[in-house]
């Protein structure tokens, strides 16, 4: 019992980090993680042991985020957000660059942002991220390719010449 709850507790900081990057609003993110935690604890007694608790929690979080987005979409509510507080290091130009990335992330379609953050921020393998998103690895890979290309274009550094792109089924 204790190890299960410890595992849940250990997963919370990464979940918060991820939720903040995903929702771009610290308060909304903390509420989302709370809902995720409640649902996790509630379902714990019926948990079928498949994969790690952490992946399971990320999956719950993403499902809740999707439901929440649907509700917000019905209200035509789009959270405007400031760029998160940056570490003091780095010059002005550096700062601008980061703001461009933050703005570009906000314009990515939700599914692309969710996928990219799992891999780039949380450091998940393709297999783990695909499990969390409940999609085939091939779908994840093409989603990531689209996200990274879009991010490059939006941050003003398009590739010099297009590379061959391929859609994996």
């Amino acid at each position: 019992m204790r190890p299960l709850l410890d595992e849940i507790e250990t997963a919370i900081p990464p979940l918060r980090r991820y939720a903040r990057a995903l929702l771009r609003d610290a308060d909304l993110a903390d509420d989302l993680v709370q809902d995720c935690l409640e649902r996790t604890l509630d379902r714990l007694p019926t948990l079928r042991a498949e994969g790690s608790i952490r992946a399971w929690m990320f999956r719950i979080l993403l499902n809740l985020a999707r439901d929440g987005r649907r509700r917000r979409a019905q209200l035509h509510f789009l959270p405007l957000s400031e760029a998160p507080q940056l570490a003091a290091s780095g010059g002005q130009e550096d700062h601008l660059e980061l703001e461009r990335v933050h703005a570009a992330m906000g314009r990515l379609p939700d599914d692309q942002r969710a996928a990219l953050l799992l891999v780039a921020l949380e450091g998940m393998s393709l297999a783990k991220a695909a499990e969390v998103l409940d999609i085939p690895v091939g779908t994840l890979v093409s989603r990531l390719a689209r996200a990274r290309a879009a991010l490059r274009e939006m941050t003003g550094r398009p590739r010099k010449q297009p590379l061959l792109r391929e859609v994996i089924k």
Partner: peptide
């Protein structure tokens, strides 16, 4: 470019894990 993206995302959103 991708590595640059990862670094930027880490600096933007890589929250303090000891919070």
């Amino acid at each position: 470019a991708w590595e640059g993206q990862d670094r930027a995302l880490g600096r933007l959103y890589g929250a303090d894990m000891d919070e």
